[in-house]
Amino acid sequence: MHRSSFLGAALPCLCLFACSGLGDSSSSSPGRTGDLGHGTFAYQCVDVQQDPACGGSAAPSSFPAEVAVHGRFKLVYSANGAASDVGNPNIEPVSKEFLSVITDQLQALRPGTANVVVRTTTDGRVIDFTPIHISPVSAIQIVAVGGVVAGAGGDAGARADGGATGGNGAALPPGASTQLLVQAFDPIAKPLAGVVGVTWTSSDPTIASVASASATGATPLATVTAVKAGLATITASTEDKVTAQVTITVAP
């Protein structure tokens, strides 16, 4: 509803957390008007490939309703005309019990409603704020990125709280690889936004190996590589030990 105002080219876009890394790997959701009405907040994926809210390649269609505990994301704020004289405002969480700031990103720390405020850098006045709803991860699902076969077993699209998902029964030939992505869900099965930390393991790396998409740490995106014929179970585990598994079949 506030899309037109957010997208207005004439409006001063005040880049806050996202001043760095605004390249191809991130894009903003349509704006959500701040509670004081002086501008709009937009959600931005830390990495569009790793944040399910961005669907792999696009910006979220709306400001996500909930962010996962431990989820990382970015926010940008665009002041409207009335507040455009505030300089370069800062955005910060109200309580560091709920949200922490890591370089140019926010990370959700615990369930609850965490407001972020936008301040002027000149006099610290609060010009706007918005709530971020944080939910615990109750279940995760492993999905194959781009519909690529992920393995055998499980119903495609089913939640993987203990079961396998994403496969259509086809097998990977040795040497082939595919990507898997973890989608997190809240206690009532609503999808959660944010890049969560996920540890990936293979029951038999000599059949199928798995590696996080980033060498710098656990990520919800992983690459599975078929090595030799057989079956291997790939397990994804979040920081809170919520797990899901998928079985990979490697063809002879």
């Binding site: 002086h38 309580s95 019990e97 407001n115 405020v117 006045r125 609060v126 010009i127």
Partner: peptide
């Protein structure tokens, strides 16, 4: 407690 946008408007922030 910080000044907010508007005359004599204050923002009260619950930190802990």
């Amino acid at each position: 407690i910080d000044p907010a946008a508007g005359d004599k408007v204050y923002a009260l922030l619950g930190l802990r």
